[in-house]
Amino acid sequence: MMQPTGRNCHYQLVAVREIGKIKRDARLWNGAYLDIFIYTNEDILNINNSFLRLLSAIVLQKCDRTENLLLAKVEALYASTQQHSQPRKLNCDI
Rank of each mutant, 00 (worst) to 15 (best):
Y39R: 02
T5P: 00
Y39A: 03
L45M: 11
H84L: 12
C92V: 14
Y11H: 09
H10P: 09
R7Y: 10
C9Y: 06
L45V: 13
Y11L: 07
I47D: 02
A15I: 12
S56E: 10
V14G: 06
A79F: 08
A32C: 15
R17I: 06
T66D: 05
I58F: 14
N46G: 01
E75G: 04
C92Y: 11
Q3G: 01
G6N: 07
L70H: 02
G20F: 01
C92L: 14
N8K: 12
S85M: 04
Q83P: 00
E75W: 06
K62E: 14
G6D: 09
A79L: 14
T81L: 06
K62R: 15
M2C: 10
E67Y: 01
G6F: 12
D25W: 00
I19V: 11
P87A: 01
D64T: 04
E42R: 10
A26W: 01
T40A: 12
I36M: 07
I94Q: 03
A15L: 06
I36Q: 05
I94W: 07
G31N: 11
N8I: 08
A32T: 13
R65E: 01
R27E: 07
N68L: 04
R65D: 02
Q82S: 00
N68E: 10
S50P: 04
L69H: 07
L69P: 01
I44D: 11
H84C: 04
K21H: 01
N8D: 13
D93E: 09
L60I: 14
Y39I: 09
Q12T: 13
E18P: 03
T5R: 13
K21G: 06
M2N: 14
E67A: 10
T5Y: 11
Q82W: 03
F51Q: 02
A15E: 03
N8P: 04
